[in-house]
Nucleic acid binder design. Structure first.
Lengths: 117, 117
DNA sequence: TTATAATACATAGATATTTGATGTATCAAA
DNA sequence: TTTGATACATCAAATATCTATGTATTATAA
């Protein structure tokens, strides 16, 4: 019931967003970026991240390229055209959801509604 | 992967919020209210609502009063003092989460930051 | 030099939430 | 009298994420 619950449904959206912005990133890098951008509030666990990436790959929303750095392997992921489209869909959905939830939970009238019902 | 995923973790927050505002409501009424407030975007299913109410009851966050309307039974729920406190905690968590997620996903500078990084 | 932490991948089992399906029953309206 | 709305309820299934665990490399600190 900590805020990790709230994360559900947003993980792939976040990943697609980062890949849309960065053109290629590897798993560990994504996790670090999320940590950084969220100011340590969202800590992606490997057990969430890697399966999510594999799923995105299977769905054709990202593609992967393996690189060897020293003796280490890095798997760079990049977003596909399909992934871009999916990202947009998820953005719209998320945007709408955020508005809806704020509408319910924090019903302060916004800038343009002088007479809230 | 529809927006119902996004709902996870917010259901009890929504219920507590409505009960905090309305002092007593019965299940069906809650479902209708959510439907109304969300403009038909969030449709609470019975299979989600009733178990959630039962759980809140068991945790002492709400209390219940049975009323008979004609031959029908209605169970009116009201929020407890504990529930109020919990609601506040969840509000704070949600608020923070919404800010964080918007920070990641929709990084447009808001009204008061002329020089976004 | 050796232990520890960070980097980098991976998977399996446990957990929790919600949905879908199904059930009972009352009441109002067509 | 049939349909739809009201009003409760529960269970099996689906889904997503986390915890825990594992392997291995590299850098840093002791």
């Amino acid at each position: 019931m900590n805020s990790t619950e709230l994360l559900k449904g947003t993980l792939t959206t976040i990943i697609l967003k980062l890949l849309a912005d960065h053109e290629k990133m590897y798993g560990y890098e994504i996790a670090q970026k999320v940590k950084e951008l969220s100011e340590d509030k969202i800590l992606l666990k490997e057990g969430s991240l890697y399966p999510a990436l594999h799923k995105l790959l299977k769905e054709g929303l990202v593609e992967v390229e393996t690189k060897h750095v020293g003796k280490r392997v890095r798997k760079y992921y990049s977003i596909t055209k399909q992934g871009q489209a999916k990202k947009q869909l998820q953005f719209d959905e998320l945007q709408e959801f955020l508005e809806t939830i704020q509408h319910i939970i924090f019903p302060q009238p916004n800038q343009l509604s002088p007479h809230a019902k």
